[in-house]
Write a protein that binds this DNA or RNA. Structure first.
Lengths: 217, 217
DNA sequence: GCTGCGGTCAACCTTTTGGTTGATCCGCCC
DNA sequence: GGGCGGATCAACCAAAAGGTTGACCGCAGC
């Protein structure tokens, strides 16, 4: 058969080298190009198309330091005409990452700790136009649809964001022009939905699930 | 010269393949063995020693899923007699990770987004018994010693980390086998040094300054 | 029109956290 | 060997947060 041409997108040289080594071990894969972030990926894709060179699958990381992130890049790629399938390959299996990837039009979602054979199968599935989900990811999606009542309202997420900046209840109340009592009510609801009983674990959990952005950058 | 023998410790097959490919491109490196976590690393080291095979450098990741983490493994390796130098190669450059690694006896601290040549140099330095630090890491340590009065102690950083996971004072006390009173004392010191007056803002500030890693990342 | 839900508020009480003072122990450095 | 700083602990009080109950309003959907 004709060799599958892959575009690698990952900001770590080590990981790119690993994927290249792992994939080209199989005679049916070849690396068309590599990119360190989303911008570079789009440029590479344009360059290859200009040269008339095929790209069958894009293997995309999500977190990529300073450059364009994988979600944005995936969405941009899906805007092209006859876009190649994008297979996400990342370290994190949080629900917001996964949902964002699906929304952006990813063809699959694999984790970096997967055995080589699983990654190889996922690439083949993606190239064939099928969907490939890591077992962990599939399990998370299943559990999510089985308990939808735990979804936070927009207001609650807003509270949670202010909470994470270190504000007291009173400060949050002033910021939102509501009473301290209402802040407490919201917090009790949030704790209930998240299954915690204090603000710090609510923040920790929300950060973990990417419900809120962490004050890192 | 005789080839440098390296033990790779990382839970991601992709990363191990990448390091193997990157390092063995240089004729002076060879991979003695690979391990997916700390336990496996110790077993490999024992096995190689039993066979009389040399290990010149251990390349160690920090986060390794379910298995023994890199800090613990590093400390364990340093307990052996004539232990090989351990070079940490990880994604994170937070103060808590770096301090823990140094305390555990690591010979260096490199980041995975480093260019191959930098990693190669670090391995050579470590093998020669020297210390190899990524520029970012070196800068952090420098700034620490230049203003030690506001610098948190290792213990305080450790408290801060547990704090960020959402534990109560009592839970932290149990985790560290100290009394609740001591936890409170530490927290008061931390708040004073960071210029805050409650736990959530301490966490927010510590995450912002990259003193700790947030649960999300 | 009624119901359900989200957002708002209040009173009351318990638990946790924050702030202060003071103390002991240990290791390190001059 | 005396001083210093980090880590440990205790008692006490004040402030903040957590938990419960109950209430009102506005809006969307049946």
């Amino acid at each position: 058969m004709v060799s599958l041409r892959i575009l690698l997108v990952d900001d770590h040289p080590v990981v790119r080298a690993g994927l290249r080594a792992m994939l080209t071990e199989f005679e049916d894969f070849s690396v068309a190009a590599e990119a360190a972030d989303g911008d570079a990926a789009l440029r590479e894709l344009a360059r290859l198309r200009a040269l008339g060179e095929r790209v069958d699958v894009v293997l995309m990381d999500l977190q990529m330091g300073a450059g364009m992130d994988g979600i944005t890049a995936t969405a941009a790629i899906r805007q092209l005409d006859s876009p190649p399938p994008v297979l996400i390959l990342t370290t994190y299996d949080t629900e917001s990452d996964i949902l964002a990837a699906v929304e952006a039009g990813a063809s699959g979602y694999m984790l970096k700790d997967a055995p080589p054979e699983q990654i190889r199968q996922a690439v083949l599935s993606a190239a064939a136009g099928e969907t490939a989900l890591a077992p962990k990811v599939a399990a998370l999606l299943m559990s999510r649809i089985s308990s939808p009542q735990t979804a936070l309202t927009a207001r609650e997420v807003q509270l949670l964001e202010l909470l994470a900046t270190g504000l007291t209840n009173r400060a949050i109340a002033r910021r939102l022009f509501i009473s301290g009592a209402t802040v407490k009510t919201h917090l009790v609801h949030i704790y209930g939905k998240l299954g915690v009983d204090n603000r710090t674990s609510a923040i920790a959990l929300a950060a973990q699930r990417r419900i809120i952005r962490t004050p890192g950058h």
